[in-house]
Design a protein around this nucleic acid. Sequence first.
DNA 1: TCTGGGGTCCTAGGACCC
DNA 2: TCTGGGGTCCTAGGACCC
Length: 424
Amino acid sequence: MTTLFALCDCNNFYASCERVFNPALNGKPVVILSNNDGCVIARSNEAKEQGIQMGEPYFKIRNLVENKLVDAFSSNYVLYGDMSDRVMQTLSQFTPNLEVYSIDECFLDLSGFSSTNLLNYAWEIKQTVHQWTGIPVSLGVAPTKALAKLANKLAKKSSKANGVLVLTNPFHIRKALEATKIDNVWGIGRQYATFLKKRNVHTAYDFTQLSENWVRQHMTVVGVRLLKELRGESCLDLEDVAPAKKGICTSRSFGARVNTFEDLQEATASYAARCARKLRQQKSCAKVITVFVNTNQFSERDSQYHASKTICMPVATSSDMELTQYAIIALKAIYRDGYLYKKSGVYVTDIVPENQIQYDLLDKVNRDKHSKLMGVIDNLSDRFGRSKVRVATQGFKNTWQLKSDFKSPFYTTKLNDIPTVYLR
DNA sequence: TCTGGGGTCCTAGGACCC
DNA sequence: TCTGGGGTCCTAGGACCC
């Protein structure tokens, strides 16, 4: 059976989420800012037209915002995550097999749908998602994932396509490849784009004309897969069950200057607890934990310090208490007085399924008790909001907390207004 | 003053083993 | 003077994605 994929991509997703609950924003330039309101990470079409770049630091557009020429929002991932779930739920009505590729993108397996009118079907998907969730989406349909990605980009760009493009006819596929700059091909980043352009490869079509050996030599097997995909040979399968993550990282830049061990400890303990929660959500435990700290790399005035410490724990765990405990041990090993810290993070690896843990005969931890306690904490978190119950080292000063001055309300979920409980 | 966060995959090279 | 070759594992680094 020939393969057929649709890629459904939400248009300007974060900006669209804000608009669903604030229709006054429609037709206006809207940007969403990164954590700490540092830089622009999403833009409405109108903001793009104003020339605001992806990744632009906030201070460069502050004037526009203060003069009400652009509306800016701090990122509200709770809202975006919830809206994403609604979109994916809606999409699951249209095929038994789908792959949630990112917060705003989804591959739909349409193999076996070749006898349906694909253009009509894609339009029906687009309209249904908009009607049920308020989010505008674009769809690209093609025999491989890489071509579906490419079709999706053209669908957005072309006023004729108006958000839906089906690429099954070889002639249309060739035209689409010719119309796509090599920089815009999925899997070609800045380095490869520069490299290829030097060798006169300027479009996706040029790329498909290269020899497999040459591509393997210069771009590894990853490049060869892309080559085949663009030629119409499907090499990337739909991953309908998300594989367990092999590494989980929680890290943040601080909203304010951090120069005491206590503040750094609060932040790092909180990140360790976040990692623990992410582990429990995918029913895994981790054996190895790494803590890292950085000073502000952009500051020419401050003295710089980067350090990390990795600890291999006796038994793989997903307990808040255990992970925070080891995180603090690691932090103590790398902490140095006299620096202004900008960022810290916790990274857990050597992840194993929670039912396949190698136990240690000398283990002193009551794992049964920990796991029951974590179950209770997770329930409380689900009901009352994240971090309402926490290990005491996570603290309460929160001087390191993120800056987020323009956050929209949690329209779709409960507000975090319950007092926090501390565990010891 | 102010510049995000969280992932994946692949390769090369060194250490080590038989 | 002779001083192989194949395999595995680990790590660091580089590329990419959203």
